[in-house]
Design a protein around this nucleic acid. Structure first.
Lengths: 201, 201
DNA sequence: ACCTGAACACCGTTCAAGT
DNA sequence: ACCTGAACACCGTTCAAGT
């Protein structure tokens, strides 16, 4: 919404650009929006962003980092109370992960894109690690309580992350349709994963 | 290699463009090469490709389909002789899948990109299905022989595919490094998957 | 039937100039 | 300190014209 009375100096253009970009990611045009279109929607000239971000990749990397932060928050929120069974906890978090990816498809893809990594590799990695840590915590507690097989929690986390990442992307890209994987493919794929994690009884 | 004596009519420009594009995918610049650069390398004007492909997405879709075909061939080639254990067969094919993705990172990403799907959705899907079928065959035989749990082979294939897709992309994007998932993360993630597929003994 | 060159409507980025 | 407008070197795509 362009404000006709906006002064020459925007005031908080950096924040406004990030928010507008985030809105654009909700659309169907992928995450490769143009900087010029972003500037148009924000109501500034197409060169204004260069005062706040080094270049396009820099702005995208910022968005990616916000994405990992949101993902971490949502994973934490999906962790039910301590009384709930650990299997349910794990499934709830897994479904929250996939839901986040599917509902923020463009952002999710951006988060794992080469562009984002090139611009802020180390910082992005630590943000991703923080999100992943929520999953690792649940797996480690599962081992301590004897729910999970006593394998390396790191390997279990790697397998879980890969499974969630794969399920999410296949869902986003429309490959996980009913004809290919049957009804409720996501849930059933998660259950196969669980079988591999849980202690054999 | 531009041939100075090439006549006005190229002869087989369509094929030449696909091959040159395939070479460009081996580079480090991602799959978003420009049509103009492709034309430059092929030694033709930047509009010549429009006689052979409807647009850029059409050319990319063609490359993606060739990619799925190659993947299928490599999965078949990785299937060892019938005498070999089924676990080894599955692991060999899984590693061939991941290797294909990592060694053809740009092509692999392109194969699953929205651009490729938009241009040739149905055809691409059936090519992907054909590649996936190799995996399904191994799983179904594993069920018949009692190696695998008697769950829906479709669900097992979905889980396996998601796992392979996730492992491949996390490897490509550099997330599966030693600090995060420990040594040989790919192999160990595959073993967790196998635990979930195999019959409990 | 196949290829070219000019043209159009776009990009990302730089930089001197404006407020 | 922050924003703009012209300019530069690119894109993808169209189309009349060349061989």
């Amino acid at each position: 919404m362009a404000n006709a009375k906006r002064p020459y100096h925007h005031g908080n253009l950096r924040q406004a650009l990030l928010e507008t970009a985030h809105e654009m990611l909700q659309g169907t045009d992928g995450w490769q929006f143009t900087l010029r279109e972003l500037a148009r929607r924000a109501g500034v000239s197409h060169t204004a962003s260069y005062k706040h971000f080094p270049d396009k990749a820099g702005l995208l990397a910022e968005l990616a980092m916000l994405g990992f932060d949101t993902l971490r928050t949502e994973l934490l929120a999906a962790r039910p109370g301590r009384e709930t069974g650990q299997r349910e906890t794990f499934l709830a978090m897994s479904e929250a992960y996939v839901r986040f990816g599917v509902e923020n498809a463009n952002l999710y893809r951006l988060m794992f894109s080469a562009d984002a990594r090139r611009a802020a590799s180390a910082q992005l990695k630590s943000q991703a690690d923080a999100a992943l840590q929520v999953l690792v915590d649940v797996l480690e507690e599962g081992q301590r309580r004897g729910w999970l097989r006593a394998k390396s929690a790191q390997a279990q986390a790697a397998a879980s992350w890969a499974q969630l990442h794969g399920i999410t992307l296949l869902n986003i890209d429309g490959w996980f349709d009913e004809r290919t994987v049957g009804a409720d493919g996501t849930r059933r794929a998660l259950e196969v994963l669980l079988e591999g994690l849980e202690r054999r009884g």
